[in-house]
Design a protein around this nucleic acid. Sequence first.
DNA 1: AACACGGGGCG
DNA 2: CGCCCAGTGTT
Length: 343
Amino acid sequence: MENEFVLFWVKRCAQLQSVQLMRGNATTALPQLRQSLLSWYDQNRRDLPWRKTRDAYRVWVSEIMLQQTRVAAVLPRYENFLERFSSVEKLAKAREASVLAEWSGLGYYRRARNLHAAARVVARAGAFPQNAEAWRELPGIGRYTAAAVSSIASNEPVAVLDGNVERVLLRLHGKLGTSAQRWRAAQKLLDHTRPGDFNQSMMELGAMVCVPGQPICSQCPIQRFCQTRGRGISISRKPRQQKREIAYCLAQSNGSVRLVRRPKSATLMPSMWELPHCAKTSDSDTVLFSIRHSITNTDYTVRVIQRGSPLRTPGLWVKAARAEQLPLTGLARKILCKAGIIL
DNA sequence: AACACGGGGCG
DNA sequence: CGCCCAGTGTT
């Protein structure tokens, strides 16, 4: 009886706090929300390699890699990259082709080019930018990444807004305003004592609990403050994937493979290496294997062809060991791996 | 505000 | 095989 009475008041207070939060005059609910989220994060956060450090360079590299890219895809590549380019000075001194080769398969290669160019700026300056506004001036660093790096590495109280945070905000408040309003909402929520952890806790919540599709509200630490609590709030869909077919030639000889370099002027993956295209096939050609490769909104079915007649293919003969060090496109790497030519 | 830019995982 | 994920820079 007494327990029920207490429970009633706990719920009642939660309701009142939620209302206050929604109306924006909420000075009591906000600290509790922050505390709940941070406690949850402390106990449930995934043990990711970039969370073991607050080193600006390492945080920076992780944020660039994680742009538009899943954690699972970054995981096997992050440590390798940092081993190869162990400091911002080392990265600055490297050739762009080496950086691209290490990035091969991660996609959005402009990220790697910008990271490299920015490393040269930082190395020349002799110091990392000291706040988000300064980070923002480097190529490849937009508003999100500047806030992420600065809050995590330097505890600057500046909020991040990415797809995860937007989804959390949408469900928490039941609506999403304009872009400017979203940034303000995120900033208003931010915990100023632990800004880096708070930012990560918002993104972690979006990734693990407040997921796209059906959120797992039973596990949500801020359910009490949430306006929607799992009621059908979702983000609009993307356009369908187009299907296309394409063929490449796989020509081998004496431990070498035929490769072509994309034009420097190409819009897509300039200067990177791939297999020669196979425009048309003859009866003597063999389909070694087919693989799927999906890029943005195009879903490719790729046939890998071995020429029956010794047709002249463009490109250069490249030793297998050498090919591995080239900036290969993800697809080229995938084909060479599947053919057993590289690892 | 719209578009271009890669690639992988899941069922 | 269909479906899902989400920052930066340019126009």
